[in-house]
Design a protein around this nucleic acid. Structure first.
Lengths: 336, 336
DNA sequence: TTGAAAGCGCTACCAT
DNA sequence: ATGGTAGCGCTTTCAA
């Protein structure tokens, strides 16, 4: 049946209808070789008539490349990762590559499983956004597919990796607090097994030490990088009757939770207690008060990832320098 | 070379090494037919040795199905859409389908282009999350691929669609405000060309009318569904010297912006002005004060989309009922 | 139970 | 400039 709307026509059909060989149609499509004007016109017409679209699947099988970049993220609804995702999207926008996104939910096993799936689908490369896989695992995967890993430090033949300087960011944050006259600074940490969380804690400790301020263990309370953890942490801090004038939250979400806990007790920010966060999520600009926080240039991270990947895939070779973190001062810290 | 780590072995290699035909290996892999115990054992061993993984591409080409669902979202970093995305992810988790996500950025042309791309990659179905394409366009696509459209009302052979009751949600919100004694209620609208925004505005008008409260045009100011729009809108409202005791924000982001504008002028929420939002983004639980808002069950929307899609693809037939919106009362509204 | 072989839709080599 | 055709890696008849 000629006019079956839903049946897809193939290159073969086009060739037949145009009275040429499949090879010619292919050449026309890809500009691989010259095609005489009259043939090109009929081919064009037939393609139009049949509404022919090349089957990318067949192309990929033949060419050995899907023109797809696999992305392993940790959560599809993380404002943090998704900012980077947008960067990746923009970076590869005009390259003809598509992104195949899968989420590992911070679970090493699941992450590995997802990467396997990406490889099974023959992505040309995979970008890994932090996560909990071991370096060895990542290195292993890199034997099978080029990898760009963010938030990790793993070197290998076909692995490129980079991270942001969390330690330095934490130093800047605490330094600022100290400059503003704060001495009793509480810290709400992130998950202990989280590399970035540890670096931030280290920055906190070292900066205090550098200023000869005692690091009081009672002022360091665990959070989970979620709002709820921040809330609980502040409750705990308050319950333990510690005296403190500022809080360094492990990340912005934590700061949000902390801020709410304070609000509940009518403790004003920054009048009574100052807060600084880490990440600079978009929404931190609109909290009340707007949050002073360490900015992670996630968008740039994303474009970097994208460019590095395209570079590895041999299409471009732009220089990529790791963007720096930096404190953005808003209104959640008061000078005392 | 036998031990080239990075070269991928094929079913053929396995067959050869195991001394059987490709057909047999395929049968073993898919359980399509009985394979004698000894052969199955050698095949298993060889697969292990060669670390063989089937090429999904070749499978897809042969089978005519990629086991992939295309998802057209509007923004990769929208908390709103991404909540639904997680729902879709969960719904299809165990089905062997993967999601191919593309973003249309609220631009009809780009949306259509993305859908074309998804189809070119031979996804088995595409889920469309609102957007600005015409019904005709969607209907057209549905001739080529099964479609589930959320936030749209388009009926056709192979299109399933559903939306949430924005009108009703708005009614509930305004109703609540009125119950709490508010009469002068400002509204910050969403984009005029946005279906949901119009429905919410209509709900606002009608509810006021139903209560014989004058709908004052000066109290209706345009927003853009972003924080910045909410901020500007409140500035405008304040500048125009209108008297009002409550704000119905077109969505939660708008409410965040509005809240900040108020904060800037030391106008307290809810003491001086009450606010209610729309969406119930996760973060609305942690704003100060926590936001009273109309909850959109986006996660359930996502699982619904996933299930409907799997249903269309002929794998399951779960009943799917559209979840209802509903007001969630928190602390941003004061009784007066 | 097993193998041979056709073919999914495409590209590219080898001829002409 | 053009056509014939092998083959990408797989599944599935058809025969045996």
């Amino acid at each position: 049946m000629k006019n079956d709307e839903s049946s897809t026509s193939t290159l073969h059909h086009v060739a037949q209808a145009a009275g040429v060989s499949p090879a010619t149609v292919s050449r026309f499509l890809n500009g691989t070789a010259k095609v005489s004007d009259d043939k090109r016109r009929t081919i064009e017409r037939v393609i139009e008539e049949l509404n022919y679209k090349p089957n990318r699947l067949a192309q990929s099988l033949k060419m050995g490349s899907t023109r797809t970049i696999g992305v392993l993220t940790q959560s599809l609804e993380s404002g943090y990762f998704n900012r980077a995702m947008v960067g990746i999207e923009d970076a590869v926008k005009d390259s003809g590559y598509a992104l195949l996104i899968m989420s590992g939910h911070w679970h090493a096993d699941e992450e590995a499983e997802r990467v396997e799936l990406l490889i099974a689908r023959r992505v040309d490369g995979v970008a890994i956004l932090t996560g909990n896989m071991s370096d060895a695992q990542i290195l292993g995967f890199s034997k099978r597919v080029p990898i760009v890993a963010f938030g990790r430090q793993v070197a290998g033949e076909r692995v490129l990796s980079f991270g942001l300087d969390n330690y330095r960011g934490a130093c800047e944050a605490v330094e600022f607090l100290v400059e503003q006259g704060h001495r009793r600074i509480a810290m709400i940490t992130g998950p202990a097994d989280h590399e970035d969380a540890r670096a931030r804690l280290a920055g906190y400790r070292d900066t205090l030490a550098r200023h000869k301020i005692e690091v009081d263990g009672a002022l360091i309370v665990p959070g989970d990088f979620q709002e709820s953890g921040g809330l609980l942490a502040v409750n705990q801090l308050l319950a333990s009757n510690q005296r403190f004038t500022a809080i360094f939250a492990g990340n912005d979400l934590t700061a949000y939770g902390a801020r709410l806990a304070l609000y509940r007790r009518s403790i004003r920010v920054p009048d009574d207690i100052s807060i600084v966060g880490f990440d600079d999520l978009h929404s931190s600009m609109y909290t009340t008060p707007p949050l002073t926080t360490v900015r992670q240039p996630l968008y740039e991270v994303g474009t970097n990832i994208g460019r590095m990947m395209l570079g590895m895939l041999g299409h471009e070779h732009p220089e990529t320098e790791v963007p720096a973190v930096g404190l953005v001062v808003r209104e959640s810290v008061r000078r005392i």
